[in-house]
Design a protein around this nucleic acid. Structure first.
Length: 448
RNA sequence: GGCGACGUGGCGGAGUGGUUACGCAGCGGUCUGCAAAACCGUUUACCCCGGUUCAAUUCCGGGCGUCGCCUCCA
């Protein structure tokens, strides 16, 4: 096998990871944009987390767990957070910074709980933006010193005209963007496309000291600073939702390459597609805004995970209850077949599918064709453990009573008292227990 | 308005210039006291219109439809 290939937004082609200049199989590095922690994560947020967790697991399999470094940040500086913090601070008469810390810590904790339930491994590093303000300030200072950025009216702005290839990720020219612009331009900007690296904070807004006065960083600079601190100037894969291509990732590239003498930020840029719910765009006004946390009350995390992987990560995906039921059914069947296997192995076709731009639907199709050993190995590589599914099925049920009822029914069947045996079966069914008679005896599961 | 993505059988969903995707559901069968489960077999496809080609679902052009992004800002 020639190693994995991934669709690169930068080149619009499937690029071989190992052919990238500077690729080091002893230190494979990936960065994924993490959550802004001010509210529960929703099902759309779950998609990149799951998709890139599978990528992380694939790379660990290919190069060894010790040789893959995965960074997923937590954004705990943001004006949406500040707005929420201001409300809380006013309502409870506490300091706005204390409110910000409270919100972001509670939300970050909840987020980690949620994604753990989805079967995601913890990344190698989970940096918080607030711990890297010093690095951000240093990077901004470098950009100013080298002429890529300028201070104006308390702000520091990146001057896009100084970066000749600005727009290369989103494939737009400055002229096109200017033509399409429909927003009023702030007076301190030299060019309408210039974006904020640093902005001033008033007394009621969280802020940090800087050469340009007390203020806070712009949105994009945190990822550039954290990636540089933890992965170095250039790394292998940068991932995120397709909505981040512009402006977020475009601006990350501009800043990082500007501050790093033109060295590429990431060699391969991967973007997952959007997610709809029951055919509709998810939004609070439509009432179909589904948080991961709510879903986990009704569904095992593994089912959510599997459902997500049935669609290729770049395709638009429709999340439906019908699909979730189908996913649960498949997983149940597979666990029954794979659990007794002591010596799992990874199938060639399965691995080839994952190496072909993370084609999880193809990989799943290969598992349908595979024997039990390869099924068990594939489930393991994709991050399925059966822990939650088992809990969801058996939790809070009096299994001793069920076992007694099954024994009584089988005794009745043996005595050919089918009226009694059917009565017992119906009684169990009324309580949501479905019986399955197999060659090795009777088993049961919870009816859905 | 600008840029981009997508459109496959009842449903989900890969892929390909000519050969079965796969899964669910349906249908038929094996098994079972019956049912469920399990297992075996099986029907239905490539948005529309042109073009290229011996051959197009697959390439090119146009159309229609769905969706995303367009910068600190809700």
């Amino acid at each position: 096998m020639s190693g994995p290939r991934f669709f690169n937004t930068l080149t619009k082609a499937k690029d071989a990871l190992e052919a990238q200049p500077g690729f080091d199989r002893a230190r494979v590095r990936m960065y994924v944009c993490g959550p802004t922690v001010y509210d529960f994560a929703h099902i759309g947020n779950a998609r990149p987390v799951i998709v890139f967790d599978v990528l992380f697991r694939l790379l660990r399999h290919l190069y060894g767990p010790a040789h893959v470094v995965y960074v997923r940040n937590i954004t705990d500086i943001d004006d949406k957070i500040n707005a929420r913090a201001a409300e809380i601070a006013a309502a409870r008469n506490i300091d706005v910074e204390a409110a910000r810390v409270e919100i972001t810590q509670a939300t970050a904790r909840q987020y980690l709980e949620d994604v753990t339930a989805l079967g995601c491994l913890p990344p190698t590093h989970t940096p918080r933006a607030t711990d890297y303000v010093r690095e951000m300030v240093a990077m901004i200072a470098t950009l100013v010193a080298d002429g890529f950025a300028y201070a104006a009216d308390g702000h520091v702005l990146f001057e896009v005209a100084r970066k000749a290839d600005y727009g290369k990720l989103a494939r737009r020219s400055l002229d096109e963007m200017l033509a399409g612009a429909r927003v009023d331009v702030a007076p301190y900007k030299r060019n309408a496309m210039d974006f904020v690296l640093w902005k001033p904070s008033d007394d009621k807004t969280p802020g940090w000291d800087s050469p340009w006065g007390r203020g806070r960083p712009g949105w994009h600079i945190e990822c550039s600073a954290m990636a540089a601190a933890l992965l170095g100037e250039t790394f292998d894969i940068h991932g995120g939702g397709i909505d981040l291509v512009f402006p977020h990732h475009e601006n990350e590239i501009a800043q990082s390459e500007g501050a790093h003498h033109g060295y590429a930020l990431a060699r391969i840029w991967m973007h997952n597609g959007f997610l709809n719910v029951e055919g509709e765009k998810m939004s609070k006004s439509l009432g179909n805004f589904v948080t991961i946390n709510e879903l986990l009350k009704d569904w095992p995390g593994e089912v959510l995970r599997f459902n997500m992987l049935r669609t290729h990560y770049r395709q638009p995906m429709d999340w439906t209850v019908a699909g979730m039921n189908e996913s649960w059914k498949t997983l149940e069947k597979w666990y029954a077949a794979a659990e007794p296997i002591a010596d799992p192995r990874i199938g060639d076709a399965f691995l080839a599918a994952l190496c072909d731009d993370l084609n999880t639907p193809q990989a799943i199709a290969e598992l349908h064709k595979a024997d039990a050993r390869e099924l068990a190995g594939g489930l393991g590589l994709l991050g399925f453990s059966n822990v939650q599914l088992r809990i969801a099925q058996k939790v809070a049920l009096d299994t001793a009573w069920i076992a007694d009822a099954i024994a009584a029914r089988n005794a009745a069947r043996k005595a050919r008292d089918f009226k009694e045996s059917d009565r017992l079966r119906d009684e169990l069914l009324a309580k949501g227990i479905v019986l399955k008679d197999g060659p090795d005896g009777t088993t049961w599961e919870v009816k859905r």
